[in-house]
Amino acid sequence: MTAGPADETLNRLPLGPVKPTPRPAGRRYDKSTLLFLGVPGLLMAVFLVYPTIYTIALSFNRGRRGEFTEWVGFQHYINLLTGDKSFLDVTTFPPEGAIWNNLLWAVFYTSLVIFLGLIVAVLASRVRYESAIKAVVFLPMAIAATALAIIWNFVYAPDANIGLLNAILDPLTQQGISWLGNPSLVNAALIAAGVWGSVGFATVILSAALKSIPSEILEAARVDGATERQVFFGIIIPMVSLPISVLAVTLLVNVVKLFDLIYVLTNGGPGVKSRVIAFTMYFESIPGGQFGRGAAVAVIMLILLLPIMAYNIRRFRSSRVT
């Protein structure tokens, strides 16, 4: 395939909503629709829609063996939110538990990824080896979270002959710090590994957004006597605010679905200190066999994603109004 036309078509790949084609007046419905939509529609109905309804219903049931045995109302939700310290513990300060950890991820992971992504994008745009830097930072996006976990398992190893971080700090600390074994460090260490994995994604999106700002606008502002500071906060930041918000939404979805990194690196530990919601859902249902409770955790995940679902639908619908 030649590079030119492929590039052109790729650039046409719409990243946002697009207007659908209206039905021409007088044309009838296509009879072959079922041929195209039948199998995918059936698969989505059986493996997506039906399980969602089943899981919501199961979350209000005792749910032994995943069957509808006894209606328990909101019992699982009440137990999770008030009786399970590994899920939410507000008796300590700061609070603890899986929900709290997800909140930590949502705040620190999201803001750090966007902040560092913006810095790398701006710095890289000023040098000739821009694409090389972006490729280096983007690289972790290609690899499995499992591999990322192994990489950071090495970096965080307490043994200064294995762990890069402890080797660097060794002259100061004189002893290996167990980053992942220390309850007060583990979440920060995990978030740092997560940030390392995602900054490249933010860099690529923000770099494209920065490049799409017409240089005439920047020129005009400078000619009119705007300082670099004013240009940055008055023009550049407002013009990349939409990409930043889309990016933030994506990262928040990542946070709700976060599982592999935690499962491989710490298995939720030490103790239950680094558990997140998706980890609890897996842990309660598959090894734990607590299907009703697991279903309730899955529904909590779904509820957290509902605003984003609504945002996507609204974005799509608003594009249809001509």
Binding site: P51, T55, L58
Partner: peptide, 13 residues
Amino acid sequence: ALLMIPVQVAFIP
């Protein structure tokens, strides 16, 4: 809407 369904809801069923 289905884009946002997490795989977790599908495990048990």
